[in-house]
Simulated scan of single mutants.
Amino acid sequence: MEDLRAFASAFPRFCDRNAVRVPGRGALPSLEGARPFEMGAEHLAAFRVDAAKDPDTLPAMLKQGPEAVAFYVSFRLEPDRWGIYLRERGIKALQEEYHRILWRDLGKYADRDIGDVAERVEYSLVLDYLLTHARFHFLVDRTAAAWEKEGGSALYAPYQETWYVPPAKPVAQRPEDIGNLEEALANLDAFRTYINPSYGEGVALMVDGKLDPRNVDEWKAFFIGGRFAVEMANVFSRQPPGWKDFSRFLNRKTSVGSTNYVRIQYSYSPDLLERGQKELARRIAGGGTPSPDNPFKEASPEMPNVYLL
């Protein structure tokens, strides 16, 4: 990954600490006590939070979305410790909420004690959501920085001022109508991971060999067949406007099974996604025509540095 630590000193006019905001938070929160978070596969598989959960986490997410737990700090604000910050006790609260959701459906299919495996599944789902969402904010920041260097005019702070708290509008029907489009697309990035069949199969395989084969099939059906996506869509939809508008990019298909069970499956619309990405690029560019036309269509960048608070 490119070294962005020198950006603030090289381009101070694009890095006004009184103007640049932390997405979803506004002012820069205290980073005291933050420590690097190892992103290696072995560490992620073993990661657990021993601290008690923060009971205010879920109510805070109704107002701040996932930024109540994980937030992105720009290289414009903290050149030597920019990246994604995870609140440890918030992760614990979210893991317990995921446990409640999963076991409401899957608890009856756990014919053996798989508490350790279940925790691994839950922490994996939580971290994937938080990190994927926050990484999108980095992509926006990096895109604006590249255009600022090329054009010589500040873009990121003016874009944030205009669009992070946009004027109220009627219910958004089109991507162009969404106020905080950045948060909607960040949530969509995470949700697209959740509805990816390969991702669901990988999660379900964690219990393979741990349960009766018939129960393993139920776990696979939950993640691959769409029931998990329905649960997560409900969770995301309780977040504020902008965050919850990720649903404007989705296709929702229902079908009725032989037992009158209504099955819901989600997919996303590539055309609507393209429109949303181009509209976000237009907003960052100040209403002009940026180049490249759609920087968000490319593969996501590497993960920024991650810290645990």
Rank of each mutant, 00 (worst) to 15 (best):
G179F: 09
D208G: 03
G242S: 12
Y164I: 04
A233M: 06
Y307K: 11
E96W: 01
L280W: 00
W103E: 07
L272P: 04
S291W: 13
Y109K: 08
T259P: 11
L125N: 07
K149D: 04
A10D: 14
K169G: 14
F249D: 02
W163L: 07
K278P: 05
P292E: 01
R48D: 03
Y307N: 05
R21T: 13
M232W: 09
L273H: 00
S255H: 07
E218M: 12
V69S: 04
W82A: 13
K278I: 13
L86H: 08
S30W: 05
E298C: 07
F228I: 14
I84H: 04
L211Q: 01
A6E: 13
R282E: 10
E38A: 11
Y266I: 01
E2T: 15
R275S: 10
A204E: 02
R174V: 03
Y156R: 09
G276H: 00
G202H: 11
E88Y: 06
Q239S: 06
R25H: 09
Y98L: 00
P79F: 10
A52Y: 00
D113P: 02
A6R: 13
G287Y: 08
A118T: 08
P292R: 00
D54C: 03
L106V: 10
A118P: 08
W82P: 04
A10V: 04
L106W: 06
E231Q: 15
R25V: 08
T132I: 03
A52W: 00
T259E: 15
R5K: 13
L155A: 11
D16P: 09
G40D: 12
A144P: 03
G179K: 14
F14Y: 14
R120F: 01
K220I: 05
L58D: 04
L188S: 01
Q277C: 00
I264M: 09
M303W: 01
W103L: 14
H133V: 06
M39G: 13
L280I: 08
A52T: 02
A144F: 03
L188W: 02
E122F: 08
A168K: 13
D105K: 08
L77P: 14
I84E: 06
A68C: 07
L44A: 05
L28G: 07
P292L: 08
N260S: 14
Y268L: 08
D271C: 01
V171P: 15
A41V: 04
A299K: 15
M39H: 11
P241E: 11
G200T: 01
R5M: 10
F191K: 05
S247I: 15
R5F: 02
G179A: 08
R238M: 15
T289A: 07
G151Y: 14
A70P: 05
R35K: 14
I284V: 15
A168C: 04
G151E: 15
P79G: 03
G40H: 01
P175D: 05
E78N: 01
R214F: 03
D3W: 03
R252W: 09
F71K: 12
G288Q: 07
L44N: 12
D80M: 11
W147P: 13
V126W: 04
T143V: 13
N180F: 03
L28E: 14
L185N: 04
L273C: 02
E32V: 15
A70Y: 06
M1T: 15
D116M: 03
N251W: 05
A184Y: 00
